[in-house]
Design a binder for these strands. Structure first.
Lengths: 221, 221
DNA sequence: TTCTCCAAAAATATCGATATTATTTGACTT
DNA sequence: AAGTCAAATAATATCGATATTTTTGGAGAA
């Protein structure tokens, strides 16, 4: 007999809800890197039982956002320059592979998908919508999803999230204003639509490297 | 008040124990691909509570050995030709990256490590020891571990396990006898010790492709 | 027969309580 | 004053029971 107090329209399991919220808290840095994640504390914060919290944390382990130390609980994954650079390197390698495969399979439906995502991203960017991050990710993932390689896409998605975590941590650096992000995206899109895999991957990797180098220069140790 | 009945010398959490056993059962095919993994059934099989089972299954999700369908339980990850070929492709890409980085950092300690692993693997192979699989994996991982790229190593380790799962499923095919595995390993080792990254990666990828093509030819759908 | 719908059964997800293990605190020794 | 050990505290891991949801099985209608 659940009262279901009008709002809270979400229909989902407690575990999944906890997973989404914890993920958000870690990505945005509200739960800082290295922090001990105490069950009781999170249980109260998310207003749920210990089991869903525990299971959500176990799931976040797969995303490398949480570390599990047997018998000693969970902690938010630590960060560091070496880790950041490994993420950057892996993204370049894996996204190049995925993008080339995607272009190899190029068809009209995929072109439509990518063009739409690009448009939505620009729209969100212009009005500085809070969901620009989501639209940005959706565009990048759309570029890759025609590879039909689910594991590779999962890796890329994971690495994307790990990367934006660093962006949140270095919050609001000027790097975004200086560069012309829109032009970079346009270059990638155009090359992809031309089915020019070499140009597309070159632009994509440049895009990552130039944001990467800035963030990397901000970090020590 | 735990009786601790003399044997069972393992000192570990129930969750971790369940994780290891379930992993083994899935890798060897005793829990076949696509099978529904019922909590109660596993609880009895592993002689533990529902919470450790549940948590172990959540952890196995990260290894892509278990799929979680919200509100509908867990199942052993399905298999298929496309999945196998994706694993093979990713291994070639990622292990090449890791091996090149490893060789770039080559030093005497690493050489020692690799030579030893190679020796142990051959020893285990000669007397057909049941732990040949472990030694084989240890050799391959030792080749990569000088890259000092923990995420990349984790991916490679994951993919290695996913691959041997297919070997178990195609159990005892003649492919192993036909080819001279030992020579292939020797070639990889020699090239690595010579710090010849091009040759080492070429041998490594050949090694994977030739076992891969055999297994792939065995599968349909 | 085939379809729909509802009750029964089974399985999952979640809770609350307890046992187990790690960490801290502080008295006591050197 | 510094170190050590044991009790007290806190946190994790686990269990058993319950609530929720999905699946099954079959009765009745088209």
């Amino acid at each position: 007999m659940n009262v279901m107090p009008d709002s809270d329209s979400k229909e989902t399991s407690a575990t999944h809800g906890a997973y989404l919220k914890l993920r958000e808290l870690i990505l945005t840095g509200e739960l800082p890197p290295g922090d001990k994640l105490k069950i009781e504390q999170l249980r109260k914060l998310l207003d749920t039982g210990a089991s869903p919290v525990r299971e959500a944390l176990s799931l976040l382990t797969s995303d490398m956002l949480v570390e599990r130390i047997d018998q000693r609980g969970f902690r938010a994954a630590p960060v560091g320059k070496a880790n950041f650079e490994e993420i950057l390197m892996l993204r370049c390698t894996l996204e190049e592979t995925a993008l080339r495969a995607s272009i190899r399979n190029a068809d009209a439906a995929w072109e439509d998908r990518v063009v739409l995502r690009h448009h939505h991203m620009n729209r969100a960017g212009l009005r500085k919508a809070p969901d620009f991050e989501d639209a940005h990710k959706a565009f990048h993932m759309a570029l890759l999803d025609n590879a039909h390689l689910p594991m590779l896409e999962r890796y890329c998605s994971q690495l994307y999230d790990l990367n934006i975590r660093y962006r949140y941590l270095a919050a609001g650096g000027p790097s975004y204003k200086k560069r012309d992000i829109a032009a970079e995206h346009q270059n990638i899109l155009d090359a992809a639509l031309n089915r020019d895999a070499d140009a597309a991957t070159a632009h994509l990797i440049d895009h990552y490297r130039s944001t990467g180098e800035y963030l990397s220069s901000q970090m020590d140790g």
